[in-house]
């Protein structure tokens, strides 16, 4: 006797999946809902209002929230420079290792994974003397923090790019392009980059998400970014601080959705490929 569907191993039933998802979703939703509820409070008088939300976007309050805007601009600039480090340093290095020095792949992987094992506070202790040198060379402008962020995003950026690199036959594609007359530059720009687009996008989005959420390094190296600004603002206007935190969360959530979408698009393309060959 056969059953119409067979479950493999200990895969949960549809109901169990929904219950687990519901519990996890509820646990995640509690603090977010609490934050939203908090931003709508009228203060000690009781009741709810949208004043804190509308006030944030009121031009009359611009000077009051200046620190937040400065922090936001700094964080966006840092995200941009960090993404630049990922794209112009990490990506070419990984491609080079993949094509020319495959024996170094393990070494590169080890180096790139190290930052995830080092707590930010420990990293800062090591970075402090380094930044005294950095400050002498590049000045103490906030963008120099991107050097440290370039290290902290390494594990995430490496993993996403490597999974894409592993999914395409970079060696054969490069050799095919070379045999057709392409220079190494053309191979990189016209063949590899278009096929690594999904990994590059994901690495960039994750880097932006990590940089926007970073507090410890900026705070201990006395630089101002979005997270330090939120902390500052919370001392004078806790409602606005929480609103900014919510908006930052929503932005990061949107980025992760985009990564998921890019990944799903790649997967469906690969599945189609398997079906037709």
């Amino acid at each position: 006797m056969t059953t119409p569907t067979t479950r493999i191993g200990i895969a949960p039933s549809k109901l169990a999946r929904r219950v687990i998802l519901g519990i996890v979703g509820f646990l995640f939703a509690i603090p977010i809902l609490a934050m939203i509820e908090f931003t709508l409070r009228k203060g000690l008088v009781g009741g709810y209002t949208f004043d804190h939300w509308t006030g944030l976007f009121d031009p009359a309050n611009a000077s009051k929230y200046d620190v937040v805007y400065t922090g936001l601009v700094n964080s966006l600039m840092l995200a941009l420079v960090t993404v630049g480090i990922v794209l112009f340093v990490l990506l070419p290095t990984m491609v080079l290792v993949q094509l020319k020095f495959p024996s170094l792949r393990r070494v590169l992987e080890f180096i790139c994974i190290i930052p995830i094992t080092v707590p930010a506070i420990v990293l800062v202790v090591g970075l402090a003397p380094v930044y005294s040198v950095v400050a002498r060379i590049f000045g103490s402008s906030v963008w120099t923090l991107a050097f440290a962020y370039g290290i902290t995003v390494l594990p995430y950026a490496y993993r996403t790019i490597q999974s894409n690199l592993g999914a395409i036959d970079t060696n054969t594609l490069s050799e095919a392009a070379r045999s057709l007359g392409a220079s190494w530059m053309s191979v990189f720009w016209r063949v590899l980059i278009p096929n690594l687009r999904r990994g590059i996008m994901a690495a960039s989005f994750i880097s932006v998400a990590v940089v926007l959420g970073e507090f410890t390094i900026a705070s201990l190296l006395s630089r101002q970014n979005l997270q330090t600004a939120i902390l500052l603002m919370s001392q004078s206007d806790p409602y606005v601080a929480v609103i900014i935190a919510l908006l930052a969360l929503a932005f990061v959530f949107l980025l992760l959705l985009l990564i998921g979408w890019a990944g799903a698009a790649g997967n469906s393309r690969r599945t189609q490929n398997r079906e037709t060959t």
Partner: peptide, 20 residues
């Protein structure tokens, strides 16, 4: 001479079409 200057056509064992 480097590969791209040798003016040779090559077909590989594995599928080598550029997927994009």
């Amino acid at each position: 001479q480097p590969t791209n200057k040798r003016d040779m056509g090559m077909v590989f064992q594995s599928y080598s079409l550029f997927p994009h």
